[in-house]
């Protein structure tokens, strides 16, 4: 039993650190990204990584209320990515 708890805690800590690290890497690309497409891609990646972080938080706290949060963030992330890309492509979001 104590082995299972230790394994769970170690895996959670490692996953938190690694996903936060990749979030920071995406932020670096967002800052230095030379083109507009790279910045949109970095924002999309940051949204996906944020969903991963929230899911990890739900596992760590054993709570079920983070499911709706991550679902809404997934939908908003997709809509905002399409809106950014459409603004660059067409010059307007809703024509």
């Amino acid at each position: 039993m104590t082995f299972a708890t230790d394994l769970m805690n170690i895996a959670l800590v490692i996953a938190f650190v690694v996903v936060a690290l990749s979030q920071i890497m995406s932020m670096v690309r967002l800052v230095i990204g030379p083109n507009t497409g790279d910045r949109i891609l970095a924002l999309d990646t940051m949204v996906v990584n944020a969903i991963g972080l929230i899911v990890l938080l739900g596992i760590a706290q054993g709570s079920r209320i983070y499911f709706e949060v991550s679902l809404i963030i997934a939908m908003l992330g997709f809509v905002s990515t399409v809106a950014y890309a459409r603004f660059v492509l067409r010059g307007d979001i809703i024509e």
Partner: peptide, 13 residues
């Protein structure tokens, strides 16, 4: 999941 996320971020960078 952690390894795949990290590989994606390294590729992006």
């Amino acid at each position: 999941g952690a390894i795949f996320t990290l590989v994606g971020a390294i590729g992006l960078l």
